[in-house]
Write a protein that binds this DNA or RNA. Structure first.
Length: 418
RNA sequence: GUGGGCGUAGCUCAAUUGGCAGAGCACUGGACUGUGGCUCCGGGGGUUGUGGGUUCAAGCCCCAUCGCCCACCCCA
């Protein structure tokens, strides 16, 4: 049999037991971020196309060639969101959330869409879990958010992650840096890779994180953004590092790190995973975006946020995905016994005990075999004899112990099991 | 959008020079009339991704196409 339909390229079903991992990740995020005062926000997955043009930047690849954009029946250009921040900022402005006491803190989780060639750690429909904090410019907020992110990752049990950060300046000092970079690379423009020659025109900062070895050599001795930062940006970044030092949060200052989205200002950061992730090894990334809210028509509002890739987090937790078996399996022989089994199961299930039934009128042996296969902890057998005597046999499949007990005793015995 | 690799059972893979499409695992039933795991026996499952071509004969050779994977670009 061939399936008549298959999933689209670059979209994937998340199946059990992996969905358990996803549940764990979201629950952990809710728990950890809740302690930091973050509340969940659920924006729509589609928006006016213009929202993303303005926020992410028309020159970025995301907008230029990766958006799922279509015209709806009202002749409006609509896009599936390629990232989360734009929608949250739109909601913040639209609902006047600046009138609530600052800071306003939100987290979200859901699917994002980018029309890219899939590869390891990258899908066309992918899931991000992120957080945004509005209204406070203090570098302590940057530190707090980064510490929260690391606490979240730590709580998941992830090891061997590295936090990198940098400051890319503000609208005052970044243009000057771009020019200094251009001046530096101009004499050797011809030696750069074709991509970097393009970057030279479009976004010279990107030359700094090119992976081509030759480009890496050419950029040795290039100007560093840290040398070009204005006084305010420099103080902001220094204060952030001091907070992290005090809190014992390990980080790597990466003066070459650049972020892809146009709206970032000052602090940018990225958490990288191990080599097992392939080329797409960033599990989370974010930064400050102090201009975006006013750009969207709101009051001047400093803000900072991050997003983490669910598939990438789940990938790092691979191997932990297991579905535990039911606490109890009730095997029954005959219709009357099946009814009795269903009644007992229903009572136990009301109390939260996971119970499976041996439907199908199979032999006792096959029912027990199935109980074993699905990893049941215990089995209760109900047959003609048990119906007659009112005493059910039970057996622990893990240690082999067994016994007999009346209906109510059985109920009591397993009502605490999960 | 660019480059490379791979498509045979649910999964992992065999199939000699082009010569009857197979194994293990998994699923399912039995041996054992009502006691799981171990063992043994049986069963279901395939248009060899798809469409053309060469040939007496194609899983294998040729062309095209689709899909998956990996990398580039970009990005979580």
């Amino acid at each position: 049999m061939k399936p008549r339909f298959t999933a689209l390229k670059g979209v994937a079903d998340v199946l059990p037991p992996e969905t358990g991992l996803w549940r764990k990740i979201e629950n952990t995020a809710c728990l950890v971020m809740g302690a930091y005062g973050y509340e969940e926000i659920r924006p729509p997955v589609m928006e006016q196309t213009g929202l993303f043009l303005r926020s992410i930047g028309g020159s970025s690849d995301i907008v230029a060639k990766e958006m799922y954009t279509f015209t709806d029946k009202g002749e409006r250009s609509v896009s599936l969101r390629p990232e989360g921040t734009a929608s949250i900022v739109r909601a913040y402005v639209e609902h006047n959330l600046s009138s609530r006491p600052a800071p306003q803190k939100f987290f979200y989780s859901g699917p994002m869409f980018r029309y890219e060639r899939p590869q390891k750690g990258r899908q066309r429909q992918f899931y991000q879990l992120g957080a945004e904090c509005f209204g406070i410019a203090d570098p302590g907020v940057d530190a707090e958010m980064i510490i929260m992110l690391m606490a979240f990752l730590d709580r998941l049990g992830l090891k061997g992650l590295s936090l990198e950060l940098n400051s890319i300046g503000c609208k005052e000092c970044r243009p000057a840096f771009r020019e200094r970079l251009r001046e530096f690379f101009a004499p050797r423009l011809g030696e750069l890779c074709p991509d970097c020659q393009r970057r030279y025109e479009q976004n010279p900062l990107r030359i700094l994180d090119c992976k081509v070895e030759r480009c890496g050599e050419i950029r040795k001795g290039s100007p560093l953004i840290s040398e070009t930062l204005c006084q305010d940006c420099r103080e902001h970044f220094t204060a952030l590092l001091e907070f992290l030092d005090v809190m014992g949060t390990a980080y790597v200052f990466n003066p070459h790190m650049v972020r892809g989205l146009d709206y970032y200002t000052r602090t940018v950061f990225e958490v990288k995973g191990g080599a097992c992730m392939g080329a797409q090894n960033a599990v989370a990334a974010g930064g400050r975006y102090d201009l975006l809210v006013s750009e969207f028509g709101g009051p001047e509002t400093p803000a900072i946020g991050f997003a983490a890739g669910m598939e990438r987090l789940a990938g790092l937790l691979q191997g932990e995905a297991v579905t535990p078996g039911p606490a109890l399996f009730i095997a029954s022989l005959g219709k009357e016994a099946a009814v009795e089994a269903l009644k007992l199961a229903s009572r136990l299930r009301e109390g939260g005990t996971r119970v499976e039934l041996g439907w199908g009128g199979f032999s006792l042996k096959s029912q027990l075999r199935r109980a074993d296969k699905i990893g049941a902890g215990n089995v209760v057998i109900i047959g003609e004899d048990e119906l007659k005597s009112g005493s059910f046999k039970w057996k622990n499949l893990k240690d082999g112990s067994s016994g007999e007990a009346g209906r109510e005793d059985i109920f009591a015995q397993f009502s605490q099991a999960k």
